[in-house]
Design a protein around this nucleic acid. Sequence first.
RNA 1: GGCCCCAUCGUCUAGUGGUUAGGACGCCGGCCUCUCACGUCGGUAACCCGGGUUCAAAUCCCGGUGGGGUCGCCA
Length: 471
Amino acid sequence: MTDGRIRVRFAPSPTGFMHLGNARTAVVNWLYARRHGGTFVLRIEDTDRERSTQEAVQVIYDSLRWLGLDWDEGPYLQSERFELYRRRAEELVARGSAYRCWCTTDELEERRKQALAEKRNPKYDGRCRTRTEPREGISPVIRFRMPDQGATAIQDLVQGEVVTPNEELDDLVLLRADGTPTYNFTVVVDDHDMAITHVVRGADHLSNTFRQVQLYRAFGWELPAFGHLSLILGPDRAKLSKRHGAVSVLQYRDDGYLPEAMVNALTRLGWSHGDEEVFAVEELVRLFDLPDVGKSPAIFDFEKLRNKYNAEHLKRADPGRLGGLLAATLERLGIARLAAGDPRLGLLIDGLRERSRTLVEMAEASRPMLVEDVAYDEAAVKKHLKAEAADVLRALAERISALSGFDRPALAKAVEELAAARGVGMGKVAQPARVALTGTAVSPPIDVVMAVLGRDRVLRRLESGARKAAG
RNA sequence: GGCCCCAUCGUCUAGUGGUUAGGACGCCGGCCUCUCACGUCGGUAACCCGGGUUCAAAUCCCGGUGGGGUCGCCA
């Protein structure tokens, strides 16, 4: 169960927001490390200096922290390790496994286009493999000499055995003309240097893996285990991308989702545990394992995240913690500022957690009970604040003002007793009261509404409602 | 186009040769009820197609079809 030697890493490139696919990869790596008592390493792959930004690095930290995925090592920044990669590249050149190439990007682009037009494989033709003299005014790249015979096989923890012919692999660039290293090179050097035992990433990297395997061999390094997770697809069945909208992890935080719901939903793509669907993070740590992950791609079901995972985790979350989150949401939405210990928070959580699917919904549902003025819904007024309701509301106000306590049981009792005294059902009292108190026909139980509002507001709103009903 | 991967309700999935093909989200209806929810009961809906193998195939094999990934001096 515990293997301290297991080392996994999450190695995103900081080129924008962190989307659900990256998040899933991070979650799986983290769960795998935690389950096996291993080490979770964070490495930022910022070798592309054009596209990498400091803000995007911050987004990665924020996203991981929000999800609760703490890392044991790092963050390592590849941009701080360029000298190391350069030395490694020269090492390969010295061994004859890599060579300098003076072809320009324009030339390559031209050949690629032509190959595609002739329906040939657009791989590098290897014309610089034997060239030794430089070309005037062109700084060369360093290319890896890929074997062009045979085949490369990998044993993948998720995908099983996958084999590809080596003629598919072309001589990839290790170092660009400006001396900076490329992804396929740094990933191998770093995974080796950082003693990564399990490389777990998205299946979009599967075809790169064959190239990387050849790099490991050229260096004479031991291979890590690989696990390629099938991709998360958008509703159109294409790889999840910006086009699909609402795919940034932090967007879910802002939309009122709980991180554990997110982790739960992401983990359940391709993985299951009998008929159980809702898991606490600790349960996932105990139950989740890589070999149990299926390999068919999955479409992320945004509706189920909301209706099932988030709704369920909202019901299970600690009320105190939820109170804090709700307070923050109320403030952010400009609805109200409630102090941490405000007793209304507890009442709102009790009254709303089972009727809300997100924190934002909860905050919006709290609004009528927290703001100064009642916003009357015309249909609700028309239906429930009829002439005969005026009397009921005044009678209720009378009972409320006579109350010595102002807690939920006392308030519920006041409403029940009024209904009984009048020989009518609860609905005849509670519905007009609900509209008078909140302006709408839908709210948490009436005792909760009154407890949150407080005596003064209740009496004031009951009177306003009565006047409105009387016409 | 080459190479690689995938294929059970609309979606996430259970299933590992013999099941009335199960669960969940959604949708529809009943019950509960101060509204809305929650809960609960019931319904709707799937094994991509074609060949094999076998007494028996959603399960194994082959082919097809469909979908996806990848083919950068991006990661």
